[in-house]
């Protein structure tokens, strides 16, 4: 089992519904976010291209945050999801520093927090909150080891990229281009 997500940059309009859904679903403290929108404008005026992405933790296969955690609070769970156990976290900040995507933040309660791929919803057979609310249906979630999952099918069909592959983290959120 290898959970992964694909985000279609051609469909994403940057409405930030995913951001709000995540904050609501996961009770994210005000002023913080586990997922966010990035807009990249590229080119020479007036020939400009814009790419919009909904970004979050990449649940990397080779996670620097899991590696550097001194207590084992950062760990992998089934399907390669990277999670933090609050009562094992000492809030040293090493994982926040180690993430090239800056996907983690210090929760006001002291421990470090991040995207969980909504694993509590997956267990109930639901999609992650961000995926389920997306009005343009630009996000796909599922098991990469299952050739019939939505994410496997769309990655077979479309060209895609990952973020900073040269950092060697083997990210598992794919961006369709």
């Amino acid at each position: 089992m290898r959970y992964a997500m694909a985000v279609d940059t051609k469909k994403c309009v940057g409405c930030a519904d995913c951001v709000v859904a995540c904050q609501t679903e996961n009770n994210v403290p005000i002023g913080y976010c586990r997922d966010w929108i990035v807009e990249v404008t590229d080119g020479t005026y007036p020939q400009l291209e814009i790419e919009i992405r909904s970004e979050r933790c990449n649940h990397c296969d080779n996670s620097p945050c899991v590696r550097c955690c001194p207590t084992g609070a950062s760990h992998y769970v089934e399907g390669g999801i990277v999670k933090v156990t609050p009562h094992e976290c000492i809030g040293c900040g090493a994982c926040i520093t180690s993430c090239p995507y800056d996907a983690r933040y210090g929760h006001p309660d002291g421990y470090v927090d991040k995207c969980t791929f909504c694993d509590h919803r997956i267990q109930d057979g639901l999609q992650p909150a961000c995926v389920s609310v997306c009005p343009t249906k630009c996000m796909y979630f599922g098991d990469l080891d299952d050739a019939n999952s939505e994410v496997s099918k769309v990655l077979k069909k479309r060209k895609f990229k990952t973020l900073i592959p040269q950092a060697g983290t083997k990210p598992q959120v794919y961006y369709l281009i």
Binding site: A16, V19, G31, C33, V38, E39, D102, R104, Y105
Partner: peptide, 9 residues
Amino acid sequence: TSGRLNPNV
């Protein structure tokens, strides 16, 4: 442009 503004990050 990023919409993320997490404190200390």
